Computed example of a mutant assay.
Amino acid sequence: MTPPNTPGNTPPATPGGRWNDLDRPPLNERALRRALLTPGSLWSSLDVVTSTGSTNTDLAALAARATDTPEGAVLVAEEQTAGRGRLDRAWTAPPRSGLFLSVLLRPGPGVPAERWGWLPLLAGVAVATGLSRAAGVDMSLKWPNDLLVTVDGEERKTGGILAERAGDGSVVLGMGVNVTLRATELPVPTAGSLALANAVCTDRDPLLRAVLRSLEDWYGRWRAAAGDPAASGVQAAYAAGCATLGRTVRAELPGDRSLTGEAVALDGEGRLVLRTATGRREAVGAGDVVHLRGTG
C-alpha cells in the first residue's frame, strides 16, 4: 500500500512531474476554456500542453495543415524548449514559470495587409494593459516588442512578442512573459519577472485570462477601424506606454549599420522615428534598439 503524502513522504521531484515545483502549479485548462471560450468571443479553442519546442511553430504548422482552423485558436505551453524571440533569439525559462502562448489571427480582407505590421505593437499594448491591471505592476514597452518592468530601480525585460505569417491571410502571434522567475534563474542580468517587480498577483490563470481578454479588446478595436492605428487608438496607446520615446537610443540596423539619436515619435507604419545630432529625422522599421544610459 502506498503511504499517504505526509511531510517526509512527498514523492521525489521529476522533470515535468506534478511535484516538480509546488510554488508553480499547472494551468487549469478546463477553467480557462470555461472562462474564455464563450459565445461571441474571439477565442475559438484553447489547448495547454506540458512541453513543446515553440508554440508559434506548432500553431503555424496547424494552420498550414488544417486550413479550416478557425481564427482565435490559442496554444499555451507550460514549457518551451525552443522558444524564439525576434532575430531568432532563444527564449528559455523553467517549466510553469511564465506565460508562453500563441494565438492564430486572420485580420481578413477588411484590414489592408500593409497594416498588419501593427499586430506585434498592438499585442504589446494588450499584454502590458492586461498584466498591469491583473498583476498590479507597472509595465512599459521597448520598441518594437519588448515588455519591461522595474526591478530594484532598473528596467528589466520580462517579456516579448513575436508575430509570424502563417500562410495566406493568417498571422500567428506569440507572447512570452516571465511571471515567477527568481533572481537565480534569470538567463541574463537584464531580465526580470513579474515576481521580481513585486507583482501583487502571480497566479498564471487570472493573468492569462487578463492577457487574452485585453488582446481581444484591442484587436477588435483595430479590426473595426480597418487596421487604422490612429482611429483604433493603438498608436496613441503604444506611444503613451513606450519607454523608448524621449530617450537617446542606438538602433542596430540591417547591413551592420547603426544609428544613434533621440526617439521622438512613432509614425503611421509603426516605425520608430529618430532625430540625430544633426537634426535629421530617420524612421527605423527593423533592427535592435538599445536604450543608452545617462541620456534622455
Rank of each mutant, 00 (worst) to 15 (best):
M1D: 04
T2C: 03
T6E: 12
N9K: 10
T14Y: 06
P15R: 11
R18H: 13
N20S: 11
R24C: 12
P25Y: 11
P26F: 06
E29D: 10
R33Q: 15
A35Y: 04
A35E: 15
A35D: 15
L42E: 09
L42K: 12
S44K: 12
S45Y: 08
L46Q: 04
L46Y: 05
V48L: 08
S51F: 00
T52W: 01
T52S: 02
G53Y: 09
S54H: 10
S54W: 08
L62R: 15
A64K: 11
R65T: 14
T67Q: 10
T67R: 14
E78I: 04
E79Y: 02
A82G: 09
R86P: 06
R86L: 09
L87S: 11
R89W: 14
P94W: 06
P94G: 06
P95A: 13
L99G: 00
L101D: 01
S102H: 14
L105M: 09
P107R: 09
P109S: 15
G110C: 06
P112K: 02
E114Q: 14
R115N: 05
W116M: 03
W118N: 14
L119G: 07
P120D: 06
L121C: 05
L122Y: 07
V125M: 03
A128Q: 07
T129Q: 11
G130L: 04
L131Y: 07
D138I: 00
L141T: 03
L147Y: 06
L147E: 01
L147I: 07
V151K: 11
V151R: 12
D152L: 04
D152Q: 13
E155T: 03
R156E: 01
K157M: 12
G159N: 05
D168S: 08
D168Q: 07
S170H: 08
G174W: 02
N178Q: 09
V179Y: 09
R182S: 12
E185W: 12
L186C: 12
G192K: 05
S193T: 13
L194C: 09
A197Q: 11
N198D: 15
A199T: 09
D203S: 02
R204D: 03
L207F: 02
L212G: 03
S214W: 03
L215Q: 08
L215S: 04
D217R: 14
W218N: 05
Y219T: 07
A225T: 04
D228A: 03
P229I: 02
A230G: 01
V234D: 01
V234W: 02
Q235C: 05
A236K: 04
Y238F: 15
G241V: 03
C242H: 04
G246V: 07
E252M: 08
E252Q: 15
L253D: 08
P254E: 02
G255A: 02
G255Y: 03
S258Q: 13
L259M: 10
G261P: 07
E262K: 13
V264L: 04
V264K: 08
A265E: 13
L266N: 06
G270E: 05
R271T: 07
L272I: 07
R275Q: 14
T276G: 15
T276R: 15
A277K: 08
T278Q: 14
G279R: 01
V284H: 08
R293Y: 00
R293M: 00
G294Q: 00
G296K: 06
